[in-house]
Amino acid sequence: MSRRFAVSLAGLALVGLSACAGGDAPAASPAATDGAGDAVSGTITLYTSEPQAKVEELIAAFNETHPDVTVDVFRAGTGDLTARIESELATGEVQADVLLAADAPTFENYKDQDLLMELDVDTAGLLEEVVDPEGFYVGTRVIPTVIAHNTTAITTAPASWQDLTDPQYRDQIVMPNPDVSGAAAFNAAVWLLNDDLGEPWLTALAANQPVIADSNGPVSQAVASGAQPVGIVVDYLVRDLADAGSPIAVSYPSEGVPYVYQPVGVFANTDAEAAAMAFADWLVSSEGQQLAVEQNYLPVRTDVDSPEGAPAMADLELMEFDLAEVQQRRTEAVELFNRLFQ
């Protein structure tokens, strides 16, 4: 093995790096949109389960409004994030300033442990369902879990959750692992608590032997590639892939869709409160929500339209649930899920 090789390896990597650096460097905004001149600055650490590319776009857009705030990102699945936060708590304090991740119960837990700071965010114009009445967190996009199918392999799409228990879908279904995906854990609880579905439905679904992929990303890929032509997955990924050309389509089940709303919260021990609040506020602002829609999410603002191809919020049948009960029984639901779907 040669020194020359090592040098050329390093060289190549550097060339690759510099060739692409600057490609999406946030344009230092020449005109900060408001004339208020409240130049917020500082560095915040964001823990999020947003896809890497989306969160980087989001920060670039945020920096057009707030060029002096640096956002360091740590991206992982919600399960991985909560595990990290727990181990940080055990050895000291939480390293993150802002958490932007899947589901409200996670935030309820942190609120109960007094880890969150009350938000200073303008909630006018937001959907009522996504705002914490006590003001410690606020939803940033509506993310329903839906049924996706591969349009080459499946001609009549499953129209309801009940349809999925039909034996014709045996070995055809793929869904995310609730140990990893916060949305999946949340859904498990919502399904379990739903009067029409509940444990009998989960048992019947398990009988069809779905493949349990790690998170929503691999689920959507499996459906698009046809590995399993039917998937239980969050809706925006399906639109992303369809936009890119994959043979994939979505159906919103007739019983209603469980949904999470990717809340944002600020940790109480933050040392960059102003920057963290500016970030949270921007996420639910008109600009932030426009970007969310461009990124194929359903918006939390009533004055911003759904992305193309998605139902308007008013037409969307959301599955009702009691947040406290979901929070209380989530662990039980995940355990049941793991037992049934082993």
């Binding site: 690759g16 692409c20 890497q52 990102v73 991206r75």
Partner: peptide, 16 residues
């Protein structure tokens, strides 16, 4: 897209 991601660039820098 892959090379433009900050996570990739940071990864390359950290690895080197």
């Amino acid at each position: 897209r892959a090379l433009g991601l900050r996570s990739t660039q940071v990864g390359v820098r950290n690895s080197l």
